[in-house]
């Protein structure tokens, strides 16, 4: 592909990263409302909410500089995470196209969220930060082992090599299923939104945030969820469409990625609407079981299935 096409795809990637996530949340809200026989807000509602937050000044509970900078660092990490992924076949930021980097950059959103929660003297934010960390502690091993299966299946940790070399085996199918679960947990959707649980810990690490800084944090979280979903969709689509040589094919692939992302959000929303929040020890237990299932899958993969 020539440079202009690449630039165009990168630009689309950037646009999607910055503009799409709040709309996706809008879709989710609409779907949830319909499931509860409500009309629901317009699709733009999440954008309206963010805009309102951006226009309000923040209340300052501490002098710590980290408190002020954490939302921006989290947002920047989320954006980098999203831009590390392929749009069509173009990766907007090529700083090393590998799984481990993606894994860590997405983790950095949570790191800054937790650090932010710990800068203030508030038991609720500390509790939220600790909960966030406990979820990470249980979900990261799962993701690590699934990456292990992917790396073994494709013989590489480079995302483009993985996409080019994945071959369909029973273990890969199981990996997809568990990966969907792991990414769902990592995104902090409804039964797993224990860290921010408004009704229990008044927003967890976010409880002292307000106004513009809160808006930036919400924006970062939406983008992180988008990035994880886009990653999953890319893994689902790209290996099976064959080599992408022409601009037209790349555009088609991008369209499929986009449509699938939009299509999966209602599924997520209905899962959210039909589940009640779990307790942290339930999540720990579930994820530990999933981890052992992952070990079995890795063994199956090494047996060549």
């Amino acid at each position: 592909m020539e440079t202009t096409a690449k630039l165009a795809f990168s630009f689309i990637g950037v646009l999607l990263t910055f503009l799409l996530p709040p709309y996706l949340d809008g879709i989710a809200r609409r779907v949830k409302a319909r499931l509860q026989y409500r009309r629901g807000p317009p699709l733009m509602q999440t954008w309206y909410d963010l805009n309102k937050l951006f226009s309000l000044p923040s209340v300052k509970p501490t002098k710590s500089a980290l408190f002020t900078w954490a939302p921006y660092l989290a947002l920047a990490s989320a954006v980098i995470g999203a831009l590390l992924l392929p749009y069509g076949n173009v990766v907007p930021i090529d700083i090393g196209f590998n799984l481990v980097v993606f894994f860590y950059v997405i983790l950095m959103v949570s790191v800054f969220l937790m650090l932010a929660g710990l800068t203030v003297q508030n038991a609720f934010s500390h509790l939220g930060s600790a909960r966030e960390m406990q979820i990470i502690l249980t979900v990261e091993p799962l993701i690590a082992i699934l990456y292990g299966v992917l790396a073994y299946n494709a013989g590489s940790l480079n995302i483009s090599d993985i996409i080019a070399n994945l071959h369909l085996t029973p273990s890969l199918v199981m990996t997809y299923v568990l990966l969907a679960y792991a990414l769902y947990v990592e995104s902090g959707f409804m039964p797993f939104d224990i860290a921010e649980a408004e009704q229990e810990v008044i927003g967890g690490p976010l409880s002292e945030y307000s106004g513009r800084l809160l808006g930036v944090f919400y924006y970062a979280i939406y983008i992180k969820r988008f990035a994880l979903l886009w990653f999953f969709v890319s893994l689902l689509v790209l290996p099976w469409v064959g080599p992408i040589n022409t601009t037209l094919k790349a555009a088609e692939v991008l369209a499929v990625q986009f449509l699938l992302t939009v299509a999966l959000y209602p599924v997520i929303a209905s899962l959210e609407a039909t589940n009640a929040r779990l307790r942290i020890d339930h999540v720990v237990k579930m994820n530990t079981r999933a981890f052992f299932a992952g070990i079995v899958i890795l063994a199956i993969a090494f047996m060549g299935w």
Binding site: P57, V59, P61, T62, A76, L213
Partner: peptide
Amino acid sequence: LYLVFKPEFGKEAKPWD
């Protein structure tokens, strides 16, 4: 992003307890 969404602080308050 910091420059785009420059932080603006209203009042100072103790953490909510």
